[in-house]
């Protein structure tokens, strides 16, 4: 948790939020299956309030499946997933969000039958202190301009912003973000990094599946490295320099 060494400005404001630390997500011995195929082989991880944690690894390592397993979107799960202290393994999928969880899928999931504003307003509030629409349009001015366009007519970057904005509006304070920078222009990736930094400062808890290590490294508190459905390494922010070679081996970058 000691991330003060390398963190950019904003750290001072970040500390008080963290003083009320609590476990937001605790996963123990999580196995997940799609039909006959066994994807996750006993995952253990804990994410504290206000932390930004990434899941690194190659394609097919089980990172997206970990997020989906938390959302109860895989075929079968065993083990334990506690969110805010609630055991969520027995919960139906539609109850997970109401624990304050916002999920942004890799394919972004913008609805083509809805316009931008309808997409934005679609998910029900899960907590009372979400961002209001004005705040969101201020953060993402492009969305305000195109609010009556069909959701899927937006550019990839705009769709990604919409997918983020959508869960921020609901008040979710645990965000599960799957490959949000994939295929986006550097300027948009930068914007997303700013947004994540801002959310961190507000004390939100973020679990980020990320391919772009250079995007993740400066903003994350910790990294889990996954391979073949296992967590093979945990790297804290201050260990990054020391473990660079190790990471390179795992990620093949």
């Amino acid at each position: 948790m000691n991330s003060s060494v390398m963190n950019p400005p904003g750290e001072e404001r970040l500390q008080p939020a963290k003083s009320s630390t609590g476990e937001k997500i605790r996963i123990h011995d999580l196995h997940a299956y799609y039909g006959e195929s066994h994807i996750l082989h006993g995952i253990d991880m804990t994410i504290m309030q206000g932390e930004l944690v990434t899941l690194l690894g190659r394609n097919g390592a089980g990172r997206s499946t970990t997020l989906k397993a938390i959302m109860n979107m895989v075929g079968r799960r065993t083990g334990k997933i506690n969110i805010n202290g609630t055991d969520t393994i027995p919960l139906p999928a539609h109850k997970i969000a109401h624990l304050g969880v916002g999920y942004c899928p890799e394919e972004r999931g913008i609805f083509s039958s809805l316009n931008v504003e309808e997409n934005l307003m679609l998910p029900p509030d899960v907590r009372s202190d979400g961002m209001c629409v004005e705040e969101i349009y201020e953060l993402f001015p492009n969305l305000a301009e195109r609010r009556y366009s069909q959701g899927t007519r937006l550019s990839g970057g705009e769709q990604q912003m919409l997918a983020m904005a959508r869960i921020l509006r609901t008040g979710a304070n645990i965000l599960l973000l799957d490959e949000i920078t994939e295929g986006l222009a550097p300027v948009i990736v930068q914007k997303l990094a700013q947004v994540l930094q801002m959310l961190k400062e507000r004390g939100l808890t973020i679990l980020l599946v990320e391919q772009n290590f250079r995007f993740a490294a400066p903003i994350a508190d910790r990294h889990y490295v996954m391979e073949h459905g296992h967590i093979v390494e945990e790297v804290k922010q201050h260990e990054l320099a020391a473990k660079t070679d190790l990471l390179n081996t795992y990620l093949g970058v």
């Binding site: 959302m71 139906p92 999928a93 539609h94 109850k95 999920y103 899928p105 609805f111 029900p124």
Partner: peptide, 12 residues
């Protein structure tokens, strides 16, 4: 369009 994601948003 996407029932699974709707479930993920908390809709029954």
């Amino acid at each position: 369009e996407n029932p699974q994601l709707m479930q993920g948003f908390g809709i029954n």
